[in-house]
Nucleic acid binder design. Structure first.
Length: 891
RNA sequence: GGGCGCGUAGCUCAGAUGGCUAGAGCACCUCCCUUACAAGGAGGGGGUCGGGGGUUCAAGUCCCUCCGCGCCCA
């Protein structure tokens, strides 16, 4: 669509006398919804489509300023691509699957999920929901998983309504008919289907292995969910006993080791030192006896043992940390586990503890938490005299579940994994190579992706021992003793998905056989929330459900997201697409930064510095808030700054006023305001259009590279110069010039305005739409992006015009204005005479525009003189005599 | 300890392949009610571009090093 054909449908202009910003958001949101302005046209072929893998925000409370920030970035790209001729597929998802929702539902309704309970079809939500006092009084009610999930839907539906309202208010050009929720049936089906396919192809597997365990949430935790926290601890020196006749480190037959976890002594299966450590080389291959428990354990060599730490010998326990797991696996050691999933010491001693003293000591630890067990163990060691010296306090990093508040333990359990290259260098290389198929914005973000994959040391753990999530779609046959055979999982048919194995019957069985010997049992675990989130492209595009849509949208064009979840969301999505479609999931990923508060600290609720988005939009207006957001460069953390929002608001108001003024010239009230390039004959008007063409080139280049901030900044700068210089220069001619000159000015102004409005449209969708509606037909957001070539053609009258004409004219006007300001006179002061000196080249450029400069300067004429540089000699009309009080008394 | 990013006016930030006296907005000062806009306009002051080396005719821009900050990881 070009600027001339859009005028065909142009209405008679309706320009308000006092345009304002108030109420634009609600009005235009309703009209856009009504007209389906952002509705995806699914007749378009893949090459004409631009599809966006929108991040589904977590529905567990409210949106914050960071959402406003990053979703605006994506929206500017969406709007640009739409105007640039692509049909934009811009769905929205809600992430209501997972722990945060589960916790809220438990607290809000006062219920607990008990997966063993049957579904109750008549269950209704407790009527005291939301009343903490009443709930506390009655206590939590146990309900089935299906009933629990129903409650999750009830609660999240409310949040999702509020989220949508906010995003609409913000002006996101989302197609609201395209939406999903990560716990809805479609997502569950996709998630289970993808898992079953991973299983069938051997990409998913289960194993009984040590895994990181959060004792509070009672669930296994994946590597991506870990974080280190610095915690105080203490090195305890323990005396291990050497075989008879071997002198130890203290010369008395003992070998000292230092450990921060003496409570795990009973779980000790070996000692380890570095192979090159000369102090311990004689001991490698021999055995020592543990203090207190008297268990004989081997002394091993391994390069992960650090000669600098403690005594250089470490105690290997099953399991104290991830290094223990590595040692255990690589050195082929026994298992002597003592901790259970509640984080307490098992009641029964592990194999190997047989001495009376050892059993007695163990009995003192049994049932204790890790914390109390440590205190007790230290006490026992003191009693036996096997604690050497006093514990030495240190501070060291300890692994935590990112949502947990107790250190992680490592327990052995049966878990499901999906291969991710953590244990397979070929797959790792393939996934790293997928990164090259995507364009990264900013490009250095790819390094984080590559480094993360390089640093993986295990596959992706996807099973979680939680309730609200997508269940693993599996059952297991029970043998004659009622024990499950995990090696023979029973899978559902894809057509039956989604299923819940805790309430759906395994194929080939009768429900009465559930839990019976010879019958079946459902897997009680759910999948990691990322196991569903990693499928957002498949879910949004209708994988296996809407092949027509899928063919037009997948693989997607853009994944916008925050940089801190490259290792989780971005990577896991790449894994899924690699396996399922043998492709990268998107052509581009755009990583946004974070919002920092004005102190440059990351904004967080706990600090009480969160500003609610609704207040912000109310106070400044959506365009103003978007302006601030769009100033945050891709990938860069940005300080919260309501000063920027005020500037954005001022810009929006200026757009209204400048448009009203510009469109006022030659308007007679019922003739559409035409743009006819043939009437644009004046050199200054043509020069302005040539410069505008350069701006269009620059903005287009920036937006093609996802640099919305640069596009906005250049457009804004150009716009202010346009209003301050060009409009001032030509307004007299546009008002009262001869017909040719006036029409040239008016048509050029309209063409410039039409162009500028479209350049601003991705950033300020409301005010630009408002102005567009005054004089043009249709929505600005469905107009074509401005074309630099068309502008250059519009400025072309067959002869050459130097775009610098516009600069020289603006400089000349500025020089005269400077003179008036210096003289402390109004800019309206008439100029009686003016001689302007400049270089011959510049004077030649200025001559065609001299009439406009003189008019804008309020000079009847301007004399020109050649010189070395720009200067003026100006005589102003004498000032009026001041008020009487300012005069010297006449006497 | 490693990787990535950052450190430019009081504040928030621009400064692509190194090149004219280092820019913008806010804040500050002066002036102007000029009939699109006073939520405006015209001007002005203010920076040894984190420190130190180096490459170059020329460095905020490239290289080295140090210091400080952030994120991710160990």
């Amino acid at each position: 669509m070009s600027h001339s054909d859009s005028s065909a449908a142009a209405p008679a202009p309706a320009i308000p006398d006092r345009p304002g910003l108030e109420g634009l958001e609600d009005r235009w949101d309703a009209i856009w919804e009504d007209r389906g302005t952002y509705r995806f046209d699914r007749t378009k072929s893949r090459s004409d489509v631009f599809s966006i893998d929108t991040p589904p925000p977590t529905v567990s409370g409210s949106l914050h300023v960071g959402h406003v920030f990053s979703y605006t970035h994506t929206d500017t790209i969406a709007r640009y691509q739409r105007m640039a001729g692509r049909e934009v597929f811009y769905p929205m998802g809600w992430d209501d699957n997972g722990l945060p929702t589960e916790r809220r539902v438990q607290n809000y309704f006062g219920v607990r999920c008990e997966p063993s309970l049957p579904h109750d079809p008549n269950f209704t939500a407790p009527d005291d929901a939301g009343d903490p006092k009443a709930i506390k009084k009655r206590g939590d009610i146990d309900i089935s998983r299906r009933n629990f999930i129903e409650l999750c839907h009830v609660l999240t539906a409310e949040d999702e309504k509020a989220f949508e309202a906010l995003f609409r208010r913000l002006g996101l050009s989302v197609d609201w008919t395209q939406h999903y929720a990560t716990i809805d049936e479609r997502c569950q089906r996709a998630s289970q289907r993808a898992f079953l396919r991973n299983l069938a192809r051997g990409e998913a597997y289960q194993v009984e292995a040590p895994s990181l365990w959060d004792v509070t949430h009672r669930t296994a935790v994946a590597q991506a969910e870990l974080e280190d926290r610095e915690r105080p601890g203490a090195y305890h020196r323990l005396a291990f006993h050497l075989p008879d006749g071997v002198a130890g480190t203290d010369g008395s037959g003992n070998l000292h080791i230092a450990t921060t976890r003496p409570e795990l002594l009973a779980a000790c299966v070996a000692l380890v030192a570095h192979p090159d450590d000369e102090r311990y080389q004689p001991l490698f291959g021999s055995t020592v006896t543990t203090p207190v428990f008297g268990v004989e354990v081997p002394v091993k060599a391994h390069e992960l043992a650090d000669p600098e730490k403690g005594t250089g010998v470490a105690m290997i326990c099953t399991f104290g940390d991830t290094t223990d797991v590595t040692w255990w696996r690589e050195l082929d050691l026994d298992v002597r586990a003592i901790l259970n999933r509640a984080g307490r010491v098992n009641p029964e001693p592990p194999p190997g503890i047989e001495t009376e003293a050892g059993l007695a000591a163990y009995a003192r630890l049994a049932g204790k938490t890790v914390f109390s067990a440590q205190a007790e163990m230290v006490e026992i060691l003191r009693e036996t005299g096997e604690l050497v010296g006093e514990p030495e306090p240190i501070s060291h990093p300890v692994k935590f579940f990112e949502k947990g508040d107790k250190p992680l333990e490592i327990v052995t359990s049966r878990q499901w994994y999906i291969r991710n290259g953590g244990r397979d260098s070929e797959l790792r290389a393939a996934l790293i190579a997928r990164g090259d198929e995507m364009q990264w914005h900013p490009s250095y973000m790819q390094t984080r992706y590559t480094n993360w994959i390089d640093g993986l040391n295990g596959d992706w753990l996807i099973s979680r021992q939680r309730f609200f999530g997508v269940p693993l779609p599996l059952w297991y046959p029970l043998d004659d003793d009622g024990e499950p055979d995990h090696n023979q999982p029973i899978v559902p048919a894809e057509a039956d998905l989604p299923i819940d194995p805790s309430s759906d019957t395994a194929p080939g069985y009768d429900e009465a056989q559930r839990g019976q010997p010879g019958g079946f049992a459902g897997d009680t675990d759910v999948m990691d929330t990322w196991a569903t989130s990693s499928l957002t492209p498949q879910i949004a595009c209708g994988w296996e459900e809407d092949e027509d849509l899928y063919g037009r949208t997948y693989p997607m064009d853009l994944r916008p997201q925050a940089h801190d979840i490259i290792r989780t969301w971005l990577f896991s999505t790449a894994v899924r697409s690699h396996f399922e479609a043998d492709t990268a999931p998107w052509g581009h990923c755009a990583l946004s930064g974070w919002i920092l508060d004005p102190d440059r600290k990351k904004m967080s609720k706990s600090k009480g510095n969160v500003v609610t988005p609704v207040d912000l939009l109310d106070q400044h207006g959506s365009d103003a808030v978007r302006y601030w957001a769009a100033n945050g460069r891709p990938g860069t953390d940005t300080a919260f700054d309501d000063g920027q929002m005020k500037i954005g608001r001022r810009l929006a108001i200026k757009v209204l006023n400048a448009s009203r003024f510009t469109l006022g010239f030659g308007a007679n009230g019922d003739t559409p305001l035409a743009i006819d390039p043939a009437t644009i004959t004046h050199p200054l008007d043509r020069a302005m259009l040539l410069k505008l063409a350069d701006l269009v080139d620059e903005a287009t280049r920036a937006l093609d590279g996802f640099d919305y901030a640069r596009a906005l900044e250049r457009t804004e700068t150009w716009f202010w110069t346009f209003t301050d210089d060009h409009v001032e220069l030509v307004k007299t001619r546009a008002y009262e010039g001869d017909e040719t000159g006036a029409e040239s000015a008016r048509h050029a102004l309209r063409l410039a305005l039409s162009t500028l409005l479209r350049l601003f449209a991705p950033f300020l969708p409301f005010v630009t739409e408002e102005v567009w509606s005054w004089w043009r037909g249709g929505s600005i957001h469905r107009q074509s992006w401005p074309s630099a070539d068309e502008l250059r053609a519009a400025a072309d009258r067959g002869d050459y015009v130097d775009p610098a004409t516009a600069d020289v004219a603006a400089d000349a006007l500025a020089e005269i204005r400077r003179h008036k300001t210096t003289e402390k006179r109004s800019l309206a002061t008439p100029v009686i005479s003016c001689t302007l000196t400049d270089t011959p080249d510049r004077l030649a450029l200025l001559r065609p525009a001299l009439g406009d400069v003189a008019a804008a300067a309020r000079a009847t004429s301007i004399d020109l003189a050649e010189g070395d540089s720009l200067s003026t000699n100006v005589a102003l009309e004498p000032a009026e005599p001041g008020p009487v009080g300012d005069q010297a008394p006449v006497d």
